[in-house]
Design a protein around this nucleic acid. Structure first.
Length: 739
DNA sequence: GAGCACTGC
């Protein structure tokens, strides 16, 4: 396996790059001095074990549990006719760290209404606990919901657990995510996204179908997880409250339907969940991970891209075969590092392992991203340059070495008192839990190494975990949803309360959109907006499209805008070809109608051509077909909502542009900027000077007035998704606002 | 002339 390499690489000193960069030196001693790592002596940082530890369960600073060994097979499984494959699944189950604590766990779940279960990766808690609960009968006749922040997690976990239960997916074990669900009346364990169950709150405020709700990955503190947890606390009080009051309890319809809550989280921040649910039992399960040796840089690295490059070649020359995963904040750094590594790799001696570079980031075309999953040819080391996409969303096999720059990009909403605000997208230091997660990526298949391009002191200075999303995103969508079920952000018992400015700004936004009245009560327009699974601004645009007779067009545009994949794929290599291909769809009005042109052209192709020529057409025009396919799912869903609300989704304005712009204008009424004499644009609400984003079709165009989808601050404040709008219409909108 | 982490309904 291991390949002998010479001690010192003979790289020449040519500096083909703009960035000032210390190069590898040419003699051995110098090179050793330049190594930027010290071996980790003493205790490893939190969360890493030098050797795998067998699972056990313990309570911290509470009475300890007596552990009972559990038999190899468990009684819940329908064992009749179990195949050998099934048998080996059971064997695997019983070997999971959590299996030893099974009986103790069940006892604790039985005794407590709320349990906080802390477990490291590989403990098996997410797949096993729901099955333990089911077999113990604790769920009674109700369902067990297991919530996940991500769709893929929900579906793949359900598939796994159905296999372990030896049932067909969708029978007793199922899942429910947007656009995809598999469950039936007999479903007892349902994996679902947290967004899905928050939506369910609107039709069933007590979530009465579920007798146990397990909130997984709670430490991620996603917006929807936080909203769910807050609601669960009140729901539990309502459903269980009367239990303890004898006599009176019988009057309540739901007294017979108590709710158990299990919060699952990584180890950090445990106490906080415990405090929030006073009286919650906190349990710990140890995980099973291969050991990862962590090295910290002996001094801070100002130029982390350069440091990553040097570290990569240090690994490449000194360490045996195994792929390297480098975490970088964004596309720009990835592309720059890709070039540098490639140039040096080309100069490697013939007898050395060769290097295969795989860049990976969300905006990249899907085909390029999937390259990382293919095994590299013999004697080749894969070097994966990735954003945070590889931290939680995607697991790459074969990674043995991780290089962590300690940086990531973070989107943060800056609320304004005037209503709305803008997003910032800036590079910042990661958190300790993120650093541990990144390091863990080296220990998926065997022992690994993680090289941190920051000092141990810098690690200790990092915040433990990320600030909850609710503290740093726009709240208008959540506020509207809460208003629908008679709740308010201000009165809801949240784990962390968002800043007052942020709540105020979202109130103003919803008021200006006509979703709330002056008394902060939800209006009928507001209810309609909330029915759409969209940002309120786009819900408003659809409602306005009814008046302008262009619902079909607005649905087409809004579906693309709310798809998660980008419509236009990035390819830095063929920038000219891309802009040439894009010209074909360009509409003078701007980006929204350009999108509409793309959708219409694609629909034409889709009607007459087969799957493969559709694909080819997209490739030729540098379009991301995934975005178009996803948008078509979203459009179907929006059409259903329209139908429910009595909006005719088939109404079209044909080739007219103005009705579409006007409808969008209703939603984007706060997102208007006017051209200044000096050629810049200035917001009509708020004081900021904004620039049209270079990716926009209106970039460098001078329009008297524009509407935009969003503002993003990077180096300047950029308006993205821009269309021109007649000044006279702004007056109309303004007049409407006052009425 | 200049750029965009990741989710979710």
């Amino acid at each position: 396996m291991s390949v002998a390499v010479k001690k010192s690489p003979h790289f020449n000193d040519r500096k083909p790059f703009k960035r000032p960069r210390p190069s590898f030196s040419q003699n051995v001693d110098d090179e050793r001095k330049r190594k930027i790592f010290v071996k980790a002596n003493g205790p490893l940082p939190n969360g890493f074990h030098k050797s795998p530890v067998d699972g056990h369960l313990s309570t911290k600073a509470r009475k300890s549990l007596t552990l009972k060994e559990n038999g190899a097979s468990s009684s819940v499984l329908s064992s009749s006719g179990a195949s050998s494959k099934q048998f080996s699944l059971q064997e695997q189950r019983s070997k999971l760290p959590i299996a030893k604590g099974k009986d103790a766990l069940i006892r604790e779940f039985q005794a407590h209404d709320v349990t906080v279960l802390l477990g490291e990766t590989g403990s098996g808690k997410t797949t096993q606990v729901p099955q333990y609960l089911l077999e113990s009968g604790l769920a009674r006749d109700g369902m067990i919901a297991v919530t996940q922040p991500r769709k893929v997690a929900a579906t793949s976990l359900a598939t796994r657990v159905a296999a372990e239960q030896n049932v067909t997916l969708g029978t007793s074990v199922g899942y429910s995510v947007r656009f995809d669900e598999r469950f039936s009346s007999e479903t007892r364990i349902k994996y679902m996204t947290d967004g899905m169950i928050v939506r369910e709150l609107m039709s069933d405020p007590l979530l009465s179908k579920y007798s146990i709700i397990i909130v997984d990955e709670a430490h991620e503190r996603s917006l929807r997880t936080d909203l769910l947890i807050a609601n669960l606390k009140t729901i539990q009080r309502q459903r269980n409250g009367s239990q303890h009051v004898k006599g009176k309890g019988k009057d309540r319809a739901d007294a017979s339907n108590p709710l158990k809550i299990i919060i699952m989280s990584a180890t950090l921040d445990a106490e906080k969940f415990g405090r929030f649910f006073s009286g919650a039992k906190i349990l710990y399960v140890q995980g099973r991970q291969h050991p990862v040796k962590i090295y910290h840089s002996s001094q801070g690295q100002l130029d982390y891209v350069d440091a990553a490059m040097r570290t990569f070649f240090q690994i490449h020359t000194d360490y045996p075969l195994g792929d390297v995963l480098i975490f970088l904040p964004g596309q720009e750094d990835i592309e720059s590092l890709e070039k540098t590594i490639q140039i040096y790799a080309n100069q490697l001696p013939q007898d050395r392992m060769s290097v295969l570079i795989c860049p990976m980031f969300a905006a990249q075309a899907a085909g390029q991203n999937s390259k990382v999953f293919l095994p590299a040819s013999a004697n080749t080391r894969k070097c994966i340059l990735a954003t945070n996409i590889a931290e939680t969303s995607i697991t790459i096999p074969g990674v043995k070495y991780v290089i962590d720059t300690g940086k990531c990009k973070e989107k943060r909403f800056l609320a304004r008192n005037t209503g709305g605000g803008f997003d910032t997208l800036l590079t910042r230091d990661i958190t300790q839990s993120s650093a541990m997660q990144r390091a863990g990526r080296a220990g998926r298949e065997g022992a690994g190494h993680c090289f941190r391009l920051y000092t141990e002191d810098a690690f200790k200075a990092m915040p433990l975990s990320a600030e909850p999303e609710i503290m740093r995103c726009s709240l208008s969508s959540s506020l509207l949803q809460l208003k629908c079920i008679g709740q308010d952000l201000e009165t809801l018992d949240l784990m962390d309360q968002p800043a007052e400015e942020s709540m105020k700004s979202s109130l103003i936004v919803l008021f200006l959109l006509g979703a709330l009245n002056r008394e902060k009560e939800i209006t009928s327009v507001g209810r309609q907006m909330a029915a759409f699974p969209l940002e309120p601004i786009y819900g408003r645009a659809i409602i306005a499209s009814k008046e302008y007779g262009c619902t079909q067009e607005v649905l087409d545009i809004v579906s693309i805008l709310s798809a998660s994949s980008k419509l236009f794929v990035e390819s830095s290599e063929q920038r000219d070809a891309v802009s040439e291909a894009r010209k074909k769809f360009r509409n003078v009005c701007g980006d929204h109608l350009t999108i509409l042109n793309v959708v219409r052209s694609y629909q034409e192709i889709a009607q007459s051509e087969g799957k493969s020529s559709r694909k080819e057409w997209c490739r030729r025009h540098f379009l991301n077909e995934r975005a178009l396919l996803e948008a078509s799912d979203i459009r179907d869903q929006l059409r259903q909502t329209c139908q429910r609300l009595g909006i005719d989704h088939g109404v079209s304005c044909g080739d007219k542009d103005d009705p579409v712009i006007y409808s969008l204008g209703y939603g984007l009424a706060m997102n208007i900027a006017l051209l200044q004499p000096d050629g810049t644009y200035k917001q009509t609400i708020g004081q900021s000077t904004v620039k049209i984003h270079p990716g926009s079709s209106l970039c460098d165009k001078k329009m008297p007035a524009i509407i935009y989808d969003e503002l993003v601050y990077t180096n300047q404040i950029y308006a993205r998704g821009v269309s021109r709008i007649p000044k006279s219409f702004i007056v109309t909108l303004g007049a409407l606002k006052q009425s």
